[in-house]
Design a protein around this nucleic acid. Structure first.
Lengths: 107, 107
DNA sequence: ATTTCTCATAACCATCGAGTTATGAATGTG
DNA sequence: CACATTCATAACTCGATGGTTATGAGAAAT
């Protein structure tokens, strides 16, 4: 069983793949050809990356004629945001404890 | 030049490594021995993972006698939060645009 | 001083993953 | 129908990476 944040982290760990996702986020829907034109790698490589992103739920594909349009699914980032939240919340809690301690020491 | 989010994503992409970081976040400072006891892998493997986390700025090590104490540096997650923010902000902006469009179409 | 304990490093191995080229499937075009 | 275009998949290569065991360095204990 591969957990949800695991898929996301793994999918976004590769810089090329992250660049593809960023383009889809910032510039909106793109065809494979358009993405390949700027990616600096071969078309099959781009397709494979898009496949990984799709499997992670980060992109959605729409077939139109002989071309495939990919678009970002930013909602899929939610588990990532949750995860960082859980990790940093503990830091804040601990920080609050420290503040309490200092306050109590002050009196 | 490896950018900051790149190091973070790569460091957190491995489930074993992420588990180590989570433990340090939730349970606080731990020695290598304590971490190894529950990690299910050899001590050298744990040390190597901790080295990667340290290089990414995610953990800090403190030497005390013959043991090394590791602790989480949650602040290091900031670039990750920023990145997800930049990606999702565009979604919200685009969503707002859509809402505006619908509103205008309504009139 | 010798031994024991804790951790890091070295050397090695196997697997994974990102890239390539070749090719096929599906759709449009002459 | 024949040809071109667009994308996905197959087969392969090769470097990166996560794991192992062996060993060394440094600190504590006897």
């Amino acid at each position: 069983m591969t957990s949800s944040p695991d898929l996301l982290f793994r999918a976004l760990a590769d810089p090329t793949r992250r660049a593809l996702f960023e383009r889809l986020c910032l510039e909106g829907e793109q065809t494979v050809g358009a993405l390949t034109a700027e990616a600096g790698i071969s078309q099959p490589a781009v397709s494979k990356h898009l496949g990984v992103l799709k499997q992670a739920g980060l992109v959605h594909d729409r077939h139109e004629g002989r071309q495939t349009h990919y678009s970002a699914q930013q909602r899929a980032l939610a588990p990532l945001v949750d995860w960082t939240g859980r990790m940093t919340r503990f830091w804040e809690a601990r920080f609050d404890d420290l503040e309490d301690l200092l306050k109590r020491m002050d009196q």
